[in-house]
Write a protein that binds this DNA or RNA. Structure first.
Lengths: 214, 214
DNA sequence: TGACAAATCAAACAAATGTTTTAAACTATT
DNA sequence: AATAGTTTAAAACATTTGTTTGATTTGTCA
């Protein structure tokens, strides 16, 4: 890689990071190319030069953010070899919460962006589902299956959604939770406790499907 | 009310309904007053004349939609006198799902709008939380308390959020669920089954806090 | 009926914004 | 050092959009 390409990459990267913040803060429509470029110390035309346009930049940012997010908190974090499904579930839930609630050094715009994309989907969502969400979902269903081996495929899916729903609520519902007097920040210990609660609630909930066919 | 005021009211109402659809479809930013007025068979200036501006119209629409939604599906629907908390929980969950999943005659833009507002909050959210969400939340916590009387206030809150999270996931996660091969439409029987699943999962989950202090 | 207010309408206004253009600066290769 | 290709910069462009204006119509009441 020549040094020309290196500076190229750095402006690209600066734009990606700046765009992530601005898109997360204002949403796609209200975010302006001008603010992004100002934040990235780049010229207004640089977005069109490097990405082709605002929309393409956005798609790039979403994919970039989702991947970074999963790599930072893999769902099997801290698990030893041959883990019990109970431990796997706990790790899955904990990593899931971390992805959204932990304030990482970057400013954690990934999660906000992802939430927006889920509720207000654009073309970028298709790629995220394919590359990030689908594998995670498959993994969770495998864990659930081990916990309730007699349940039908449909029931396993429903139970998995019950678990994911609990996690995502703390993300999607954040503005509401704050306005209801809930916490604005989550320390590591808070996230740990939350994960333990959801894991306990869910393991108990799964008991309803244990040992009986659908 | 004079007939002048009646026509006034009807254009107002037409604008509210049209705006609800357009805002839900495109989001606040991308929705244009021109499209709203075209849909409402009204002049471009009518939004400013009747509401003062686009933002005020939006705030009005959000509040209007949230109220209509709860009135259409009250959380105590179909309950007899002195219901068991288990039945109350089931009714609460079922009405909650209906609010978001049932396609009502209006085109059900309420729910979409509400989801947008939760993820990308504006000033309008404060009012919705105060007037609609808070009372619903209080009701749910009261039900949960009856089911786990020994649990702490914090734990009751967490359990309530676990329940709401399961319901909301089918709303917020809809674009993802569809892309994962899930259903696009929910018939009444589907909603019923879903409610039963969530109620069962949750009642089972709550057992973890039954009969023991925090 | 006639006057007054409310409502509607077509047209214009003013601001913001994504994009394009054209030239300058920079980098690497010969 | 010269040149070709790449990247950056400032300014202008074209379009969209919320809002305002002033005239016109509609409805009500004396």
């Amino acid at each position: 890689m020549t040094s020309t390409q290196i500076t190229h990459e750095t402006t690209r990267k600066r734009l990606l990071e700046a765009a992530g913040q601005v898109f997360a803060q204002h949403g796609f429509e209200k975010a302006t190319v001008r603010e992004i470029c100002r934040k990235a110390n780049a010229n207004v035309a640089s977005v069109n030069y490097h990405f082709g346009g605002k929309e393409d930049l956005y798609a790039e940012v979403v994919a970039y953010g989702a991947q970074q997010s999963v790599e930072a908190f893999p769902p099997d974090r801290g698990l030893g070899p041959n883990p019990l499904p109970e431990a796997e579930l706990n790790a899955f839930i904990h990593s899931f919460l971390c992805r959204f609630l932990k304030k990482n050094q970057r400013g954690s715009w990934y999660s906000t962006l992802c939430a927006r994309e889920i509720v207000l989907p654009t073309r970028a969502l298709d790629r995220v589902v394919r590359e990030v969400i689908r594998p995670l979902s498959d993994r969770l269903e495998a864990i659930v299956r081990r916990l309730v081996p007699r349940a039908s495929k449909l029931e396993v899916g429903r139970c998995a959604r019950s678990i994911v729903g609990q996690c995502l609520f703390y993300h999607h519902g954040r503005p509401v939770i704050e306005r209801m007097g809930g916490p604005k920040k989550y320390a590591d210990a808070d996230i740990r406790r939350l994960a333990d609660h959801i894991a306990r609630f869910s393991l108990q909930g799964l008991r309803g499907w244990k040992g009986r066919a659908a």
